[in-house]
Structures are given as structure tokens and as C-alpha cells.
Design a protein around this nucleic acid. Structure first.
Length: 946
RNA sequence: ACCGAAAUGGCGGAACUGGUAGACGCGCUGGACUCAAAAUCCAGUAACCUUUAAAGUUGUGUGGGUUCGAGUCCCACUUUCGGUACCA
């Protein structure tokens, strides 16, 4: 009797669905366990084989925990707002509502196909009004709160307003601290516009001017991701940085808590480090430099105030607000040119490029606070507007980037830390004593820092400050397909929020989505919606993708609640996520925002846990093969060349165009190529290239001139599996051929959950063979159930319990690949004994149930079980069957193995050593040599060192 | 460039706190069954040298170091992957 996966899986899928086996109740009497996957964005290319890697792992844990008696919440939903659906709509005219609906249904079918035990009645979809009602509600809470530095939590903005009207902001505890001061009288005298502007400086959700990548030709804002080499990826149009009023979230208020609370989490050290570095706390000083011939002061931040006497120049970011006023007439031209050059470069370019140093002089000078010397002010792209104050003091002797800059432009280099005793240290090193530095001469760096901070504070030219690398989060998108802001403006641009009971503010339906104008989102075309009443206009930006995903894990606890985002009881019962599984690509973004929102909701006493995700595991990416063909830039008609001709061109003349894997012959090998047929398919797929020239080693051809020997070599890479690389592998194909159980186990068997690996089906027959062998153990050759009812032998019990022990340990560590190896060993050993013992097999079947839910359900019934195997108790190992009191010790002399020795496990080191010395054979080896020591490694080996 | 991770046979990977490197699976080779093939079962499989065998030598990205002993710890590098704030 062979195992018919199709029949068995269909049967049980239907059974589970009908009997609602996966239904999760808010049964507050049972211990809870919340295991969560990062919910997917329902992309048009469907679920690929990489997605389920984490889902299968969490499903195994969920089923395992359920069998251990926990009330397990293992939900699924969709992060359904996003850019791709909008672009698809603009290109095809298909509305995001429709495409998203279709994509989600496809995902659901695919997920069910794999046998994941989601309770779909708890599904959460971020683009549904009943969900985004609460996203908007949380936004309004953020808008209506400020951060109180004394109580260290968010508090209502009304309280701050009340405070201002009687005290001004002079001694307020509101974050941020270093704003312009005003008195109560001044506050009370302000008009609505002015008050609105002041409050924007304190609200946790606020408006400010920030930069976007604007592409005039496409009429839209572009993601950094959509920009390649300074031009738009689509079409290669120019992109500029454009300043616009946008919403932002004051996440920086929570920096310290986000940093400190990391220690309570069961996350990997590398993940915590990434978050720590992202927050990037550094302590130092803020300093104000007088500007020559100006009343303005240039504000800088430095971690090395001790090097104040080594300042050779100042550098400000090209976007700095002082650039125009500081630029003198003679320098006007070069500064303008330089700003234009910088605007054409992406942030990534600016960070990555370190070889060439660029910059221009403004023509203006600062005055050194102590020496009163004039210091030139320069502009350079290596100073970023978003970090610190967007201005630095250049200390070339003690900072390598400043040094490179000074060398290039011939600026003053003053040594202020004597490093002569430490010849090989970096210029940044804090070793050595201060020189050439007036009142701090002779001090160690640390002491000098302290002394300078005391002095500048006293002289009111600066103060101690912690600087964070993390910036407030931009919360505006000039897009249609996102949550609308529950905000409108009056004629004077004063911001009003709509009231909570008017939520949700529905996203208006626009028949045909098209790009906006003047930097506005497509919502500008919803003219009626955009003007709620005369004299008022709505916010036309929408919220970014991370808005909905920053709190979805809470909604799963109580998804249908209409009076709150989740009931207090449900929130208290489910508490936090016990295990969160998702990709490292979310290491900082999503995880940081979600932690921030959770802490905010904690401050408002809606949730009772300070962190949302207790244990975090990052599954690796399943990568795909990307095949690229080479396009020669700026050719007309477009020319494609074979990769074998690549050496004839400079790298910057070539562009890599990913092609559909289906067109490529011998993909992922040195022989990968498009032959004549492949090129035809390519052109059919991308008709824009129908007139192109294709060149291989034999010559250049038009499409209809290609001969059968033509070979356009492609370049293979390993990278993301994604629609944009056209390399998506659908799990349905694998499930259809081998079955869901095999697919699940194979994904787990591929390697450690946390490693990335390219998808390859080569080894799947091993897992498939294993399940078939396992299935056959229950039947005889005539397909009759053939099981022995006897009590199991000692040997059988040992095999089983060794496996149970290993599997339980491995599940705890999420080490599923070795776990599956244990199953294979167990089955092989039982088969060697010709075992068909019913007791052994029913235990093994329970053990295997979380991994292969369908086949074990079937066999559970073959064994005469009632109900579902997933409602049974998970087996635990009985130590009695595992104990052996003897173990093989290798005895080695100077590390070389000589002898295998069976001794009792319970001997002490002394007993073993004296026994070693009595063994005749060993005595012979070591006869004349004095023994240095005997090393005894418990359970491992005995090493005699001569 | 910065932050984080990874590198072990022909391939995916195993090796718990340093202690017999290569578990388990794929592939390959040989054999059994078969008219034959598929399926299944059995055996072998890091490389090298000599070879009947036994044994020996070298081996965990590169170069150093610590240790009786290093895939594992330390230092310096190389390559690949993820992130770098508007892809999700």
C-alpha cells in the first residue's frame, strides 16, 4: 500500500475545516501561548517557497504547544496596503481593492494547501476600514500626546497646553528640550496658527518639512529602492530632493526606553546589536560657534569636545538652512553647482563613497570660542543633514574623514592629543594626553572631555548632550493606497483632527488611479473628498506601510471588537507574543516601530506589557537565482550583449536586466544563456525591446536575423526571490508533486531556520522516501494493517525514547533540520529490527504530528484513534529507557587515538586516571616517558600527554 | 562606507560548554530483484599516497596566534547575503 498524499491531504484538510479544529477561543482558564508570523504583503506574484519557511516553523511550534496543553494563538493576516498594488493600478487600471482581494485569496489558498493551522476567523487585514479605523485612532492618540521627560511617558497634549498658558515652556518637562523659549504671556498672545506651530514641536505625531525623492517626469515620489545610479529605475528619469511638509512620528522620545528594554528580551545578540546601533546613542556635547559678521550661531554636536583646540574648519551639510546666508557672493557659483551635484546623488551613494572627497568653501567664518581665531565654514556631502545638527567641527588630526578632507583642500591640521607613545593607533584613538590646548593641556582625553563640558556650560556656549543616530520616523506617503490621515486643515493651514467617533475616515474610491500633481498623492483627484467643507481641505498624504503593521499583533487577540482595538481582557490574557518568527530584513524597521507603538499604548494603559515580542527568531531568506542579461546603456536601438563580451565594456556602460528564469537555458550555471528561442520569449515578454540588437561572439543581429547557434550568455546571481527578478517558485507546484507533508519537512530539512539558502528541490526525494517508508511500516504487502500488539522490546523503547528526547530538545531550539534527521534515524533503526509494534508506532506518530500533520492524522485513525492527533498529548522521553551505564572512551596519547575503552559512566576522574595507569597496553606505550598529565573529558575521551 | 550574519566533501548540511570532523539527506559507484525500466532493498563514497590489506599524509574561505588538543577561542583579511530610514 503506497501513500497517496493527494487523497489523504484533501480528506483531512476538509475534516479540519468542517470540525473547526483550528478555532482559537479566548479561554482564559488555560495557559496561553502566542506564536506569530510576520504577516505577508499579498504581492501579485503569490506566495513563494521562501515565505512558508517561517510559517512552517511556527506551525510546528503551535501544534507542539497545543499538544502540550496550551491555548495557542497562531493567527494570520495581511499587510495589505502598499506601493506595488498602487503601481499596478496605475499601469493596468485594476483597482488596488480588487487586485489585493485576488492576491489575498491566492495567499490563503496557498497557506491552507500547506496545512498551516490558522484560525482564519481571526484574520486581520490592514486595508479594511474595520481595521484601519483603529490605526487612525492610534494616530490620533499620538497626535494628541506629548512626551513628558519627568514621568517618562506620553501624556495628553491638553495638559501641556494648560501648562503653557500658566508657565510658558521655560521649565516644562516636555520632549524635546532645546526649543525656543516663551513665557505664559507670550503663549497666550499667540494666534491659532502660531499655537499650532508650537504644539507641532511637541506632539508625538507632528508635521515638519522633510525631503523626498521627487521625480518630475513620473510625477511621483520614489522610494530609495526605485532609484538606481541617481535616476529612476523605471525610465531613467532625473530625481531631485524636494522638501515638503510631512507627517513624522517622534520615536526619538522613546530612544532610551527602546534601548534599555532590549535587555529584557529573548532575542539574539546580533539582533539586539542591530537595534542598539540603529538607535546609535552617543554622548558628547552640543556647542554653539559664533559666526563672523552675523548674529547667528552655528550649532554642532561632537563626541570629542576635548579636541576643541584642534578645530581646523567647520563643515555643514549641503541642505543646511544656513547655506544660503553663509555663502558669499564670490562663492555663489561653486556652492550652487555643488548643491546641484549633491542633489543628484542618492543617500546611499553619499554614504558608500569614501574614496573621493568633495566639498566647497562658503566664504564665511566661525569664531573659535576660546582662541577667537577665524575658522572657515565648508559644505560637504559627508555631513548628513539628518544626523545631529547637520554641522560638525572638523578636527583633522583626530578624525580620519576630517583628515581626508583637510588633505584634499589644504586645511589646517592641529595635533591636540599626543599619540607619540601609541604609534600604531587610529587618529580617533582616545589614548594619549592633550597638547596645544590651553586649559586642558596634559589631561587624559576622558578628563579633558569633562573639563571642556563644564567650561562651555559655564560660559553658556554649549552643554552635555546625548545624540541619537535614530531620527524621527517619516509618516507621510504621497500615495493613494494607504490609511488616510484623520486630519484636515483650515485656510491658514492650521491642523484639525476629526473626532474619534467619526472614525474610520474612509479612503475614497477612485475609479482610475493616476499619479498626483505638484507632489501630491493621487487623492488630489478625489476632489469632493478632499474638500470636506468650505474653507477646509483634507490631508492628502496617506500613512506608510508600517502604520498597519505596527500594532496588528494586538488586533489578533480580539479581531472583531467594534468598541476598542481589543478588549482589556483579551489584551491582558494574551499579553505579549511569546514567539515571533520573521525575516532579518525587518530587524530594525518594523520591529522598532512596533515596539515604539506598543510602549506608547502601554503609557496610555491600554496594554499591560512593556514589550510586544518576547522571543524573536529570524528565519533566513530562501533565495532565488537571478539571471541577468547585459544591456549597453545609451544605445539606440538598444543593444544587448552576451556576458562573454563583457570585458569589452566598462562596468558603468552596462546595465543588468533580470529576465524570467523560464527563458534561460542552464540557469544557475556557467553555461546559463538565452538561445534564439529564449530571446524571442524575452521580447514577447518585454515588447519594448522588439527593435533591439542582440550581440554574441558571432556578431550582432536583429530579432528576426537570429540563427540557431545564437547564444546570449547571462549572468547568474543569488538574491531575493521576488517578482522584480522574475524568479519566484510557487509552493503549490511542490505540494502537488510531493504533498504538503513532504514540502513542510523538506523546507525544515534544508538547513538551520536562521540561515539563508537558495531554493533547490534536489534533495526532496530523501524526505519523500522517508514518509513513504514510515507509512509502509503500518501495513503488510497486501495493504492490510499489520501491527504487533505485544509490549515493545527494550531495544525498540530505546530507539523511540532517544528520538523523543532529541526531538523535544530540537523543537525547543527550533533546530528542525536535525530533528528530522532524528526521525529518519529512528525509522531506519526500527525497520532494521522489522518492528511494527503498535505502541512504539503510535508514540512515534504523535511525535511526528506537528511536522507532518496530514499523514499522522491518517495513521492516527489507522491506529484506531478518536478525534484528531493534534488534540492528543505530546510524548515525553522516559529516562529509564535511555540509561546506559557504559560508554566508549577513546584513550589517546599526545592527542593521537590508540585505544577504545568501555568503562562505567559513573567513575570519577581519579578512579579513571588510576585505571588508565594500570592497563598493560597503555603502560607499554608510555614506558620510558614521564607523563605530564592525564586529561579526562567526561563522556568524551582520555588524553595522556607525555 | 557603516551595522549584522555566513563560509565545512560533488551538493544541502551535522558536530551540545574546545575533545574520534563529515551525522542525516541528495548525488555518484557497485550489487540484488526484473525480459527491461521504474520503484524497492543491500554495500561503498573527504582528498592524496603506496596498495591485497593494514597503515600513513593532508584536510572545515585566507594568513597568523593561544592550547596537550581549534570547524569551535583571539587578531588581521577575502568573498557572499540582509539592512542602511519611501520595497515589503
Amino acid at each position: 500500500m503506497d501513500y497517496n498524499h493527494k487523497e489523504i491531504e484533501d480528506k483531512w484538510r476538509t475534516y479540519w475545516f468542517d470540525k473547526k479544529i483550528n478555532k482559537v477561543e479566548n479561554d482564559f482558564t488555560k495557559p496561553k501561548y502566542y506564536v506569530l508570523d510576520m504577516f505577508p504583503y499579498p504581492s501579485g506574484s503569490g506566495l513563494h517557497v521562501g515565505h512558508p519557511l517561517g510559517y512552517i516553523a511556527s506551525d510546528i511550534i503551535a501544534r507542539h504547544k497545543k499538544m502540550q496543553g496550551f491555548n495557542v494563538l497562531h493567527p494570520m493576516g495581511f499587510d495589505a496596503f502598499g506601493l506595488p498594488a498602487e503601481q499596478y493600478a496605475i499601469q493596468t487600471g485594476i483597482h488596488p481593492i480588487d487586485s489585493t482581494k485576488i492576491n489575498m485569496q491566492r495567499y490563503r489558498d496557498q497557506l491552507n494547501n500547506i496545512g498551516l493551522n490558522y484560525d482564519w476567523s481571526r484574520e486581520v487585514i490592514t486595508c479594511e476600514p474595520k481595521y484601519y479605523k483603529w490605526t487612525q485612532w492610534i494616530f490620533l492618540k499620538l497626535f494628541n500626546h506629548y512626551y513628558n521627560l519627568e514621568s517618562q511617558k506620553a501624556e495628553p497634549i491638553e495638559e501641556l497646553i494648560k501648562y503653557f498658558s500658566s508657565n510658558g515652556n521655560t521649565n516644562s518637562n516636555a520632549y524635546p528640550k532645546d526649543l525656543e523659549l516663551f513665557t505664559a504671556e507670550e503663549w497666550n498672545a499667540m494666534n491659532a496658527v502660531q499655537k499650532d506651530h508650537v504644539l507641532m514641536n511637541y506632539r508625538l505625531a507632528y508635521r515638519k518639512k522633510s525631503y523626498v525623492n521627487w521625480c518630475e517626469a513620473l510625477g511621483t515620489v520614489l522610494a530609495n529602492d526605485e532609484i538606481k545610479d541617481g535616476v529612476s529605475e523605471r525610465g531613467g528619469h532625473a530625481v531631485e530632493k524636494k522638501a515638503m511638509m510631512q507627517w513624522a512620528l517622534r520615536i526619538t522620545a522613546y530612544c532610551d526606553r527602546l534601548l534599555n528594554d532590549l535587555q529584557s528580551l529573548d532575542w539574539s545578540d546580533s539582533m539586539k546589536n542591530m537595534q542598539r546601533n540603529w538607535i546609535g546613542k552617543s554622548s558628547g556635547a552640543q556647542l554653539f560657534f559664533d559666526i563672523d559678521n552675523s548674529t547667528n550661531k552655528l550649532e554642532i554636536f561632537t563626541t570629542r569636545p576635548d579636541t576643541i583646540f584642534g578645530v581646523g574648519f567647520m563643515v555643514i551639510a549641503p541642505e543646511h538652512e544656513f547655506v544660503n546666508t553663509l555663502t558669499t557672493a564670490e562663492q555663489q557659483k561653486v556652492v550652487e553647482d555643488y548643491k546641484e551635484y549633491v542633489a543628484s546623488r542618492s543617500d546611499l551613494d553619499r554614504l558608500a563613497e569614501t574614496k573621493s572627497v568633495t566639498g566647497v568653501f562658503t566664504g564665511s567664518y566661525c569664531i573659535h570660542p576660546f582662541t577667537k581665531e577665524k575658522i572657515p565654514i565648508w559644505i560637504s556631502e559627508y555631513v548628513l543633514i539628518d544626523y545631529g545638527t547637520g554641522a560638525i567641527m572638523g578636527v583633522p588630526a583626530h578624525d580620519s574623514r576630517d583628515l581626508a578632507f583637510a588633505n584634499k583642500f589644504g586645511l589646517n591640521i592641529i595635533q591636540v592629543v599626543d599619540q607619540s607613545e601609541f604609534p600604531n593607533v587610529e587618529p580617533e584613538s582616545k589614548q594619549g594626553k592633550l597638547i596645544n590646548s590651553d586649559f586642558i593641556n596634559g589631561l587624559d582625553v576622558q578628563d579633558a572631555i569633562e573639563k571642556v563640558i563644564v567650561k562651555i556650560t559655564k560660559e553658556k556656549i554649549g552643554h552635555r548632550k546625548n545624540q541619537y543616530r535614530m531620527r524621527d520616523a517619516n509618516f507621510s506617503r504621497q500615495r493613494y493606497w494607504g490609511e488616510p490621515f484623520p486630519i484636515y486643515y483650515d485656510n491658514e493651514e492650521v491642523c484639525h483632527s476629526i473626532s474619534e467617533n467619526e472614525l474610520p475616515l474612509l479612503l475614497p474610491y477612485i475609479e482610475k488611479i493616476s499619479t498626483g500633481t505638484e507632489g501630491k498623492s493621487p487623492l488630489i483627484h478625489a476632489t469632493e473628498w478632499a474638500k470636506p467643507k468650505p474653507g477646509y481641505s483634507r490631508e492628502l498624504d496617506t500613512m506608510p506601510g508600517y502604520a498597519g503593521s505596527s500594532w496588528y499583533f494586538l488586533r489578533f487577540m480580539d479581531p472583531d471588537n467594534e468598541s476598542s482595538f481589543a478588549s482589556k481582557e483579551a489584551l491582558d490574557y494574551w499579553g505579549e507574543v511569546d514567539l515571533y518568527i520573521g525575516g532579518t530584513e525587518h530587524a530594525v524597521g518594523h520591529l522598532m516601530y512596533a515596539r515604539f507603538w506598543h510602549k506608547f499604548l502601554f503609557d496610555l494603559k491600554y496594554v499591560s506589557t512593556i514589550e510586544p515580542f518576547m522571543r524573536l527568531v529570524n528565519q533566513g531568506m530562501i533565495q532565488g537565482i537571478i539571471e541577468n542579461i547585459l544591456l549597453v546603456k545609451e544605445t539606440s536601438p538598444t543593444q544587448f550583449i552576451s556576458a562573454s563580451l563583457r570585458k569589452n565594456y566598462r562596468e558603468d556602460q552596462l546595465a543588468y536586466i533580470p529576465v524570467h528564469l523560464g527563458f534561460v537555458k542552464n540557469a544557475n550555471s556557467p553555461e546559463s544563456q538565452l538561445d534564439k528561442g529564449g530571446v524571442h520569449e524575452f521580447v514577447k515578454w518585454k515588447p519594448d525591446y522588439a527593435e533591439s540588437i542582440f550581440t554574441d561572439e558571432t556578431g550582432s543581429y536583429k530579432l528576426d536575423e537570429l540563427n540557431n547557434n545564437f547564444s546570449l550568455k547571462t549572468i547568474s546571481e543569488v538574491g531575493k526571490m521576488s517578482k522584480r527578478y522574475h524568479n519566484v517558485v510557487n509552493p503549490d507546484e511542490v505540494v502537488a508533486e510531493y504533498g504538503a507533508d513532504v514540502f513542510r519537512m523538506y523546507e525544515m530539512f534544508l538547513g538551520p531556520l536562521e540561515d539563508s539558502k537558495p531554493w533547490d528541490t534536489k534533495g526532496i526525494t530523501g524526505v519523500s522516501g522517508f514518509l513513504r517508508k514510515y507509512y509502509r511500516m503500518f501495513f503488510d504487502e497486501q495493504s492490510n494493517i499489520a501491527l504487533s500488539e505485544e509490549s515493545p522490546s527494550k531495544e525498540e523503547l530505546k530507539i523511540l525514547h532517544t528520538c523523543i528526547k532529541k526531538v523535544n530538545e530540537d523543537i525547543k531550539n527550533l533546530s528542525f533540520n536535525t530533528c528530522i534527521s532524528s526521525f529518519m534515524i529512528c525509522v531506519n533503526e526500527l525497520r532494521r529490527l522489522n518492528s511494527n509494534n503498535k505502541i512504539i508506532l503510535s508514540q512515534l506518530n504523535l511525535l511526528l504530528a506537528p511536522f507532518a500533520p496530514f499523514i499522522t492524522e491518517e495513521l492516527f485513525n489507522v491506529l484506531g484513534g478518536k478525534g484528531s492527533v493534534h488534540q492528543e498529548s505530546y510524548p515525553f522521553a522516559d529516562e529509564r529507557y535511555l540509561i546506559t551505564d557504559e560508554v566508549n572512551y577513546p584513550v589517546s596519547v599526545n592527542g593521537k587515538k590508540r585505544y577504545e575503552w568501555l568503562v562505567s559512566k559513573n567513575k570519577t576522574q581519579t578512579e579513571l586516571e588510576s585505571e588508565v595507569l594500570q592497563i598493560e597496553e597503555i603502560k607499554k606505550w608510555i614506558q620510558d616517558s614521564p607523563i605530564k598529565k592525564i586529561i579526562f573529558v567526561p563522556g568524551r575521551m582520555i588524553n595522556i600527554v607525555i
